[in-house]
Simulated scan of single mutants.
Amino acid sequence: MAESVPLSTDRAPAHHEALDRLQTLVADDLSRVNQIILDRMQSSIPLIPQLAGHLVSSGGKRLRPMLTLASAQMLAYDGRRHEGLAACVEFIHTATLLHDDVVDESDLRRGIESANAVWGNKPSVLVGDFLFSRSFELMVEDGSLDVLRILSRAAGIIAEGEVLQLTTSNDLGTTEEAYLEVIGAKTAALFAAACEVAAVVAGRPQAEWDALKAYGHNLGVAFQLVDDILDYSAKQAELGKSLGDDFREGKITLPVIIAHSRGTDEERAFWVRTLEDTEQVDGDLDHAIALVRRHEALAETAARAQSFGEAARRALDPFPDNEAKRLLLDIVDFCIDRVY
């Protein structure tokens, strides 16, 4: 058995106050989830836990599994099934990150070398597949066909979203509607499933499944909108991420769509050269940042994130007030306030 890798929880306390309080609320459950993750990523083939552990222990927020745990607490669920499903959610997320870094040819993940930069593309893809298989084992062990349907469908939607993003990359004809379809699939689907399964295990009525799914979906869209803002913001460095990754990869995100639509012919020619033709030179990223600011594309994207955040908050209206609900509402602010 390969050596276990400790799970890092290092964060910037001032910026992550709401996240810290959420983690405190679910601390006991999260500890057991982390142990499930460590146990299930082990293999007699040493490279598997070594590579998986590199990403799992690299300081991720565990936001998605914490949403499962907090949603279960809000519903006063007193069993243990949500712990295995929270681990399942994290395995799906981690597998997609391994695959994404290969597709995007990323060298960094959370400020450290990505797994594909260290071990290469083939091992990263295959270990991602291994983690997907672990997630499905956990779904089956739970024994609920509804849980299996929700989480397996989410995995499929995420894959569809990534393929759809490939078709929109380097295409400035991408509409805002198409962009929202991409992030609704590749990001929001797992947020939605992570919350919805809590209502399933708690034995709640369908209306509450739908409400938690809506909360997670809208939160996930807001989260990704803010991520797309940060790619063109100095705040990115404070969060341990590389500035301009989306720009260098030719990704068409909402700030670009807005800036391009409002730009002059000369500015549009710049976007075509850098994103469609991928002919980038020194200084292009700075000019791109100047353009999205000039046309208030970041502020406009932030306003969209606020709108989705409000929808997430409204989705929780049917639930009685308790500490878990208040923290789930606060997490909406955390996701959006990362940009400020």
Rank of each mutant, 00 (worst) to 15 (best):
L126Q: 10
E276P: 06
I289E: 01
E300K: 11
E279P: 14
I92K: 00
L67P: 01
Q280C: 15
L239H: 04
L30P: 02
A192C: 08
Q206D: 11
K122Y: 14
A27L: 13
R11C: 04
G244Y: 03
I252Y: 00
R273D: 12
D39G: 11
G283W: 09
H54T: 09
V201G: 01
V256E: 00
A315P: 00
L316Q: 00
D10I: 10
D78I: 09
A188W: 01
R326D: 02
R62D: 12
A311Q: 06
A76N: 15
H287A: 15
L131S: 03
A185G: 02
L275W: 00
S114K: 09
F247K: 03
E249G: 02
D333P: 01
A290P: 05
V339S: 07
S114E: 07
F223I: 04
W271C: 12
V103N: 04
S106Y: 14
G161E: 03
L67D: 00
E296G: 07
D228P: 07
V140D: 13
P318K: 08
M41L: 11
R313T: 02
M74W: 01
E90N: 08
P123C: 03
I258S: 03
Q50V: 05
I331Y: 08
V89I: 15
S4A: 06
K122F: 15
F136W: 08
I289Y: 03
